[in-house]
Design a protein around this nucleic acid. Structure first.
Length: 508
RNA sequence: GCCCCCAUCGUCUAGCCUGGCCCAGGACACAGCCCUUUCAAGGCUGCGACAGGGGUUCAAAUCCCCUUGGGGGCACCA
C-alpha cells in the first residue's frame, strides 16, 4: 500500500504543480504552463511540485521524461517535490500510485457516487455515432449501466468481467466554480456525461488521478491551460463526491500559433523564408535561443507587468508576477518578438560568455573553431545575431583556409569595371602588405588614406577588399575582420581575388 | 451540431474590476530619415486599434444586453 502523507503535517499555503504526461517531447505551451506555476510558487515562497502523469500506457514514451526534466532545468525551474528530489508526498509518478486511485474509486462506488460500467468501446462508439447522426442535443455516454443493481455489478466484476468505473454526474442543476482569471464559470449539468474514473486496465484517467493527487499532495492552486476549462465542472463534482475542498483554480490562455489560427500544435510551422518554426523546447534550444531570453519572453505570453516594461531579470519577474495580470484572451506566439528579445539578450552578454555559447553551434556546423579566435570574433558579430544558430553563417570564412568559390563580379564596386576594381585591389594589397602592426588601428587610417589618394569613396575601396577576404558582400566590420584573419591569409585571398578579376577582364 | 471561454493597432499588450486624467500608452513588425565601409546595432519620425448595434449614465474602451468574429472542448488521451 502506498504511504499516505502525514495528516498532521501543515502543508505550505502555496503549493502548485506541473503535471506533464510523458507521451511526447515537451513543447512551448507546456513550458509556459510550468513557468507560470513556478513563478507563482517562487513569488509566494511556496512549493512547486513536479508530478509525472504516466497513466496512459498506450502513448507512453520513455524518452519523454528526460526531455521534460531537461526542459525545466534549461530555464532554471527547480522543483521542491518530484522526480530526483523526492518530497514528503511521493511517489511522484502516478503509475506508482495505482492502489490509491483504486481505493478512492472503491470508496466512491461504496458511497453510490460512482458505478461500474460494462459497455464495450464498440457500443460506446456506436452510441456516439447515432447521437451525432440524429444531431442529438446530448452527445456522450448514455448512462446505460448507471442504474445497474450495485451488488449484481460487483458480482460481475468479481467474476472477472471487464469494467470501467464512472462518476455519477448530477442529472440537473448546474455546476459553478470561480476561475481566478475569468471569474464565475457555470455549466448545465444536463450537458455533462458520466466520466470514466478508472479504465478497464486498472489505471485511472486523468480526472481521477489528478484530483486525488492534487488533494493528497496539498495542492492549493491549480494553474493549467484553457483547454481544461470544459473538464473543470467534472472535477468540481469529483471533489464534492470525495468530500474534499477543491484548490483554487485558474485557466491560462491558450497559446495560438503565429497566424493566430488554432493552438500551437506539435507540428512544425513554416515561417518567413521557409524556416521551420520551433515548437518543441529542444527545437528552441537548437535554434539558439538563450534560456534567459526564453524565460523573459515566455513570462510575457499571457502575462504582463505594466504594459511597457518588457525586459526583466528573472528576479524581477518573480517579484512582479501576479495572477491578476494574466490576460484571459488567447495569444498568438510572436516569433519575431522572441527573436528581437533574444538579440537584446545576446548583445548583453560578456564576450567570453557569448563565445562559450557559440561554440557548440560552430562545431555542429562542422567549423574547426577554436575558442580563442571565437572570443576575438565576438565584438564583430555580437550585434548581428538574433539567434545562436546564425553564428556559423556569420563567421564561417574565418575557419577555412581557402574561400569557397564566389562570383568574381562581386569584386567590382558600383560604377566601376573589372579593370578599375583590379587597380583598387592591387593598390590595397600593397598597403595590406606594408602596414604594421597588422591591426585595426593602423589598417583603417592607411586604407582611408589610400581611398583619398586614389580619389574614390571609401566604400568603393573597401567593398572589393571585403569580397576578396570574406567571399561575399555582407560581412562583419572590415578592419576587425582583417586583423583576426591575419596578414598571411588576407594577402592570399586578395591575390586570389586579383586573379579572378584578371580572368574577368579577359572575358569582357 | 452542442457546451464553454474570449474580443483594444498586422501581432503581443497597458487601460476595463474601482466610468471622466484616453481624439487610447508601450513593444514587435513595417516604412522613411539620420548615423555609417557592407550588414547589423543605435537614434528620430511615420503608419496603425477600442468588432458592430442597442442600452445605463451628465460622461463608456471601461457597466449591461444582443449580434458577429475568434478560440477551446465534446475519448477507457492527457
Amino acid at each position: 500500500m502506498t504511504q499516505l502523507p502525514e495528516t498532521n503535517s501543515q502543508p505550505n499555503t502555496f503549493r502548485v504543480r506541473f503535471p506533464p504526461s510523458p507521451t511526447g517531447l515537451m513543447h512551448v505551451g507546456g513550458l509556459r504552463s510550468a513557468l507560470f506555476n513556478w513563478l507563482f510558487a517562487r513569488h509566494h515562497g511556496g512549493d512547486f511540485i513536479l508530478r509525472i502523469e504516466d497513466t496512459d500506457r498506450r502513448r507512453y514514451e520513455p524518452e519523454a521524461l528526460s526531455d521534460i526534466l531537461e526542459s525545466l532545468r534549461w530555464l532554471g525551474m527547480d522543483w521542491d517535490d518530484g522526480p530526483e528530489v523526492g518530497g514528503g508526498y511521493g511517489p511522484y509518478f502516478q503509475s506508482e500510485r495505482l492502489d490509491l486511485y483504486q481505493k478512492y474509486a472503491d470508496e466512491l462506488i461504496e458511497k453510490g457516487a460512482a458505478y461500474y460500467c460494462f459497455c464495450s468501446p464498440e457500443r460506446l462508439a456506436r452510441v456516439r455515432e447515432e447521437q451525432q447522426r440524429r444531431k442529438d442535443e446530448f452527445v456522450g455516454y448514455d448512462r446505460f449501466c448507471r442504474d445497474l443493481e450495485p451488488h449484481q455489478a460487483a458480482q460481475r466484476v468479481g467474476d472477472g468481467e471487464t469494467a470501467v468505473v464512472r462518476l455519477k454526474m448530477p442529472l440537473d442543476g448546474q455546476t459553478t466554480f470561480q476561475d481566478l482569471i475569468r471569474g464565475e464559470i457555470s455549466v448545465e449539468n444536463s450537458t455533462q456525461d458520466d466520466l470514466v474514473l478508472l479504465k478497464s486496465d486498472g489505471y485511472p484517467t486523468y480526472h481521477l488521478a489528478n484530483v486525488v493527487d492534487d488533494h493528497l499532495m496539498g495542492v492549493t492552486h491549480i494553474m493549467r491551460a484553457e483547454e481544461w476549462i470544459s473538464t473543470a465542472p467534472r472535477h468540481v463534482q469529483l471533489y464534492q463526491a470525495l468530500g474534499w475542498q477543491m484548490p483554487a483554480i485558474a485557466h491560462l490562455p491558450v497559446v495560438l500559433d503565429p497566424s493566430g489560427k488554432g493552438k500551437m500544435s506539435k507540428r512544425k510551422k513554416k515561417g518567413a523564408g521557409g524556416r521551420e518554426l520551433p515548437v518543441l523546447v529542444q527545437d528552441f534550444r537548437a535554434a539558439g535561443y538563450l534560456p534567459e531570453a526564453m524565460f523573459n519572453f515566455l513570462a510575457l505570453v499571457g502575462w504582463s507587468y505594466d504594459g511597457h516594461t518588457e525586459l526583466m531579470t528573472r528576479e524581477e519577474i518573480i517579484e512582479r508576477f501576479s495572477v491578476k495580470h494574466i490576460n484571459p484572451a488567447p495569444a498568438a506566439f510572436n516569433y519575431d518578438k522572441l527573436d528581437h528579445m533574444n538579440g537584446v539578450y545576446i548583445r548583453g552578454l560578456e564576450a567570453e560568455d557569448l563565445a562559450d555559447r557559440m561554440m557548440p553551434f560552430l562545431e555542429e556546423a562542422g567549423l574547426a573553431a577554436d575558442r580563442e579566435t571565437v572570443v576575438r570574433l565576438v565584438p564583430l558579430v555580437q550585434e548581428r545575431m538574433k539567434r545562436l544558430d546564425e553564428a556559423p553563417g556569420l563567421v564561417d570564412f574565418f575557419f577555412v583556409e581557402e574561400l569557397p568559390d564566389y562570383d568574381p563580379k562581386l569584386l567590382i564596386p558600383k560604377k566601376m569595371d573589372a579593370a578599375g576594381a583590379y587597380a583598387l585591389l592591387d593598390e590595397a594589397r600593397a598597403v595590406l602588405e606594408d602596414v604594421s602592426p597588422f591591426a585595426h588601428d593602423p589598417l583603417e587610417p592607411a586604407l582611408r588614406e589610400l581611398a583619398e589618394t586614389m580619389g574614390v569613396k571609401v566604400g568603393q575601396l573597401f567593398s572589393p577588399i571585403r569580397v576578396a577576404v570574406c567571399g561575399r558582400t555582407v560581412a562583419p566590420p572590415l578592419f576587425g575582420t582583417l586583423e583576426v584573419l591575419g596578414r598571411e591569409r588576407v594577402l592570399k585571398r586578395v591575390d586570389s581575388g586579383l586573379e579572378k578579376l584578371k580572368t574577368l577582364e579577359q572575358t569582357e
